[in-house]
Amino acid sequence: MAQAIQKLKTEGNDLFRGASHFEAAQKYTEAILVASQRPLWDSAQTAMEEMAVLMSNRSACLLELGHPTEAYWDTEVVTRLKRGWSKGHFRMGRALMGLGRCGQAALEFEIGSQLDPEARDMKVAVENVQQLI
């Protein structure tokens, strides 16, 4: 199961890098479906980590496709599964910006910056959103 999930994730990553965002989102969705079938005796931590990364990647695709609402709901799950992961908060901030909710986006970017003070993309996002508020 882990190999199938990793294969789909890798295919999705390759498609995303090639700007085939719709096809990449499909691969991530397939991987999410496979990951959701993990048996109950598998490590919950592994399942949560896997699901958070896949949904975060799919949210990036959805943002590129102009679907901030769907991206936002994916990031809601991501930030609940991995509260201390700065990338989840970064993706949620981007989705909120896409929804025109810049104040909330700024809060998410701030959380992400606190979690990973070295993240350059987070610093840029904080600066950009501050200009919009």
Rank of each mutant, 00 (worst) to 15 (best):
34 V>H: 02
129 V>A: 07
37 Q>K: 15
16 F>D: 00
73 W>T: 14
127 E>R: 14
54 L>D: 00
90 F>T: 03
132 L>Y: 00
100 G>S: 05
67 H>N: 14
84 G>T: 12
95 A>R: 05
91 R>W: 04
24 A>G: 05
32 I>M: 13
74 D>Y: 04
87 K>P: 09
66 G>E: 07
120 R>I: 14
53 V>Q: 08
6 Q>C: 03
61 C>K: 04
56 S>F: 02
43 S>Q: 06
48 M>K: 14
92 M>E: 09
87 K>L: 10
72 Y>M: 13
67 H>P: 00
43 S>E: 11
58 R>L: 04
106 A>M: 13
78 V>E: 02
26 Q>T: 13
120 R>S: 12
94 R>G: 07
77 V>M: 14
23 E>P: 02
129 V>F: 04
68 P>R: 03
52 A>M: 01
116 D>M: 12
70 E>R: 09
124 V>A: 10
87 K>H: 03
9 K>Q: 11
25 A>N: 01
39 P>I: 09
41 W>F: 13
2 A>G: 15
28 Y>V: 05
67 H>W: 09
102 C>H: 10
112 G>I: 09
79 T>F: 03
66 G>T: 03
103 G>D: 09
39 P>T: 13
93 G>N: 09
108 E>S: 15
49 E>N: 11
11 E>L: 11
50 E>L: 13
34 V>W: 01
12 G>N: 02
38 R>A: 15
97 M>V: 10
51 M>S: 06
95 A>F: 07
68 P>C: 12
52 A>V: 08
119 A>G: 03
9 K>V: 00
119 A>T: 04
126 V>W: 07
2 A>S: 10
59 S>F: 07
127 E>W: 06
104 Q>T: 01
2 A>H: 12
105 A>S: 11
17 R>H: 08
3 Q>V: 09
56 S>M: 06
113 S>R: 15
46 T>P: 00
111 I>C: 11
122 M>H: 06
97 M>Q: 13
68 P>F: 08
75 T>G: 02
73 W>V: 15
101 R>T: 00
128 N>T: 05
54 L>W: 00
43 S>H: 04
123 K>S: 14
86 S>K: 05
32 I>P: 03
